[in-house]
Design a protein around this nucleic acid. Structure first.
Length: 680
DNA sequence: ATTACATTAAACATAT
DNA sequence: TATATGTTTAATGTAA
């Protein structure tokens, strides 16, 4: 039974795509409570202001445009928050849910995106690093920005007041309000953003930082309510903004529309705060500060709030933290599903960041246009990352991308993960091509550089009871190749499995049988009679044979994926980075060092199976862990009986399959036995 | 719809 | 005989 359940979970993985889809898919309206949050609310001041004037001042116009844009963005936010929800979560519901929820799916995965592609996009550590950096940067910048804007507002207000004309005063009031609204929106975006971060555990709760308000603000503070109303009320001016949003970045409109339809049931309507938005300027900051003290007690949990589980799509009510923890551990354990959800969330965050950047830029432009700010538009100093070039607002995204290479402060990658397998492997460190764990583990073709990912996630798999996203064949091969002799007995293979993967410490009968089955089935595994029994070796040629040299992380593919996501904001450099990262650095000194390795490019240290090995610059560089002596040893062990088996392969004929790269490291091995074959 | 592959289960054979 | 090791077949599911 254990076995069964286990396998079941596994099976669900392959459908991971659907996994992803279904996850978000199940969002059947329910989750969208947030979105639904009635449109009654506070935004009135602004609205009336505009109305009263009859005709719109430029500032107002801008304001409304901005509002609308933000509205769209917010809808997007909220919807994604809810869209991810997959309340059911039960496999049984998957199919059914498909009908209801395409919200997040539609949003997240434009048709052209296959789940695998998504994973490819999302999993690499670089991305994560990038994300984190971006986030940190943005947050800081935003905060600063807010501050400055506040100051500006004050200044303006003062100036105007000095002028002391009643009429203008009113106009100014409107203006001010408008901008305040704007600021609020921005802040909300930020908050939502943070919330998302928290959700995926990328941001730890630190009372001091913005994380505090997180829990409360998004819900308690304002906006969701006032804006919609505003929008509705003003109907007309909307179009332009909407269009612009549409064109510029993610096509939110479509999704937003969809979302609204689902948003209907305002399920857990957050305690509609009336307390916010009094009118005064400091509202923003104030409310924020206030909320920070609230609810974020040390005993709380980022995923727990208002008595319910905040896991995307789960809104399970939990009476207390203890119960919630229990629930968390049972319902949201580290499995393929959760991982997939995490990944989706990550993507959401990315998109939001981009959107945020866009909106910020727009705001900047607006302000510049209104002379609210000296021409040098650079509200965002770079407090965090000394990104050299980026000086303009518009470069926010750019700078983030630029700073990515060096920045990677600390991909929460492997090195950590002692006993807390909280970080899904794919998120933390999977290499581009390596794909994440949620990915169909079978698709060997994509994750040839198993060793790379394995090395990076070594610790993770070791401790987390997650099924590794590799096929048995690739695992076995890895096990064998990891040894100096490149040969293992069956039992040693077993041991390797259990040693390397927590997952394989269970259900031994099942996977052991599978291992044996694979050993026998695949020609690439060669049994060699030894003095002390039989050992298994790998026939790389055979192994490669069964995997056509597919570009694992084709840059073009990645590019397409990105563009498919409407990542308008993704600049060339980022794309380039992505593309680059899809090519393992093979010449990197192997040193199996998960910690460091993960921190940079997806160096596939011992990328044994990398199909696109560029015939390592210097032949010697590649064999990372194969020290000469060992190597010879191997030969020695194999010698007698081996030949019969190993030689059976028609070397010359088969050598061809990977003509291009032609130098899979492993072949070094075989070179010895079959000299001159492929090196031709 | 077809095909190839991966996984799982299980029957069976052989060696220790 | 029991267990470990191998081999093989079949059923099932997924992806191309």
């Amino acid at each position: 039974m254990m076995v069964e359940s286990a396998s079941e979970t596994i099976r669900s993985a392959p459908s991971g795509q659907n996994g992803v889809g279904s996850l978000s898919g199940q969002a059947d309206g329910s989750g969208s409570g947030a979105t639904g949050t009635t449109a009654s609310g506070t935004g009135r001041d602004v609205t009336t202001g505009a109305d009263s004037n009859g005709e719109m001042s430029p500032a107002e116009l801008l304001h409304f445009q901005q509002q609308q844009a933000l509205q769209v963005a917010r809808q997007f936010l909220l919807q994604q928050a809810s869209g991810l929800s997959s309340p059911g979560n039960n496999e049984s519901k998957q199919s059914a849910s498909a009908v209801q929820v395409p919200v997040s799916v539609a949003m997240m995965s434009p048709q052209m995106l296959t789940p695998q592609q998504m994973q490819q996009i999302l999993s690499p550590p670089q991305l994560q690093a990038l994300l984190q950096q971006q986030q940190a940067l943005m947050l800081q910048q935003l905060q600063e920005y807010y501050k400055k804007q506040q100051e500006q507002l004050h200044l303006q207000l003062l100036t105007q007041q000095q002028a002391g004309k009643p009429q203008p005063k009113e106009a100014l009031g409107n203006k001010q309000l408008a901008f305040q609204q704007q600021l609020l929106q921005m802040q909300q975006l930020q908050q939502q953003h943070l919330l998302n971060l928290q959700r995926q555990g990328l941001v730890s709760l630190q009372p001091s930082q913005a994380s505090g308000p997180l829990q409360t603000l998004p819900q308690a503070a304002v906006c969701p309510t006032d804006l919609p109303q505003l929008w509705k009320g003003e109907g007309a001016p909307g179009q332009p903004a909407e269009d612009s949003v549409k064109q510029e970045g993610l096509d939110l409109t479509g999704t937003a529309a969809t979302a609204t339809s689902f948003a209907a049931p305002p399920k857990v309507s957050p305690p509609l705060s009336h307390h916010t938005l009094p009118n005064g300027q400091p509202t923003v900051l104030t409310s924020r500060r206030d909320s920070s003290s609230h609810e974020e007690t040390p005993g709380s949990h980022p995923l727990y709030g208002h008595g319910e589980c905040k896991w995307p799509g789960c809104e399970t009510l939990c009476e207390d933290l203890g119960q919630f923890i229990k629930h968390l551990n049972t319902e949201h354990a580290l499995d393929d599903r959760s991982t997939a959800q995490c990944r989706v969330q990550m993507q959401v965050v990315q998109q939001l960041e981009i959107q945020l950047a866009k909106e910020s830029e727009r705001l900047q432009a607006m302000m510049a246009h209104l002379h609210m700010r000296p021409p040098e538009p650079k509200p965002f100093s770079q407090p965090l990352n000394p990104v050299p070039g980026s000086s303009s607002f518009s470069k926010v995204t750019v700078s983030a991308a630029d700073s990515f290479p060096d920045g990677l402060v600390h991909p929460p990658t492997s090195a950590a993960a002692p006993v807390t397998p909280l970080r899904p492997p794919g998120l933390g460190s999977a290499s581009l091509h390596g794909g994440g764990p949620a990915r169909r583990r079978s698709s060997d073709k994509f994750c040839s550089p198993i060793s790379s990912e394995l090395a990076q996630n070594h610790e993770f798999y070791k401790n987390a009871d997650v099924r590794p996203p590799f096929t048995y064949a690739s695992l076995i091969r890895q096990a064998i190749l990891e040894t100096p002799d490149r040969q293992l007995t069956l039992n040693e293979i077993y041991n390797w499995f259990t040693r390397m993967f927590a997952y394989f410490r269970r259900n031994t009968a099942t996977w052991k049988n599978a291992v044996r089955h694979n050993l026998s089935l695949h020609k690439c595994f060669v049994r060699v009679e030894n003095v002390k029994g039989a050992v298994w070796t790998v026939d790389e040629r055979e192994y490669q044979k069964r995997r056509p040299p597919k570009m694992t992380g084709s840059p073009t593919l990645v590019k397409n994926m990105i563009s498919g996501l409407s990542y308008g904001a993704l600049n060339a450099s980022y794309q380039a980075a992505l593309a680059e990262s899809s090519f393992p650095l093979l010449n990197s000194p192997g040193m199996l060092n998960p910690g460091s390795a993960s921190s940079l490019l997806p160096l596939s240290h011992d990328d044994v199976g990398a199909p696109l090995e560029p015939l390592s610059s210097n032949g010697s560089s590649s064999p990372p862990r194969l020290s000469p002596p060992q190597y010879s040893h191997q030969v020695q062990v194999k010698e007698e009986p081996a030949e019969a088996e190993e030689d059976r392969q028609p070397g010359p004929s088969l050598g061809a399959p990977n003509p291009s790269a032609s130098g899979p490291p492993e072949d070094r091995d075989l070179d010895e036995e079959l000299p001159g074959e492929e090196l031709s």
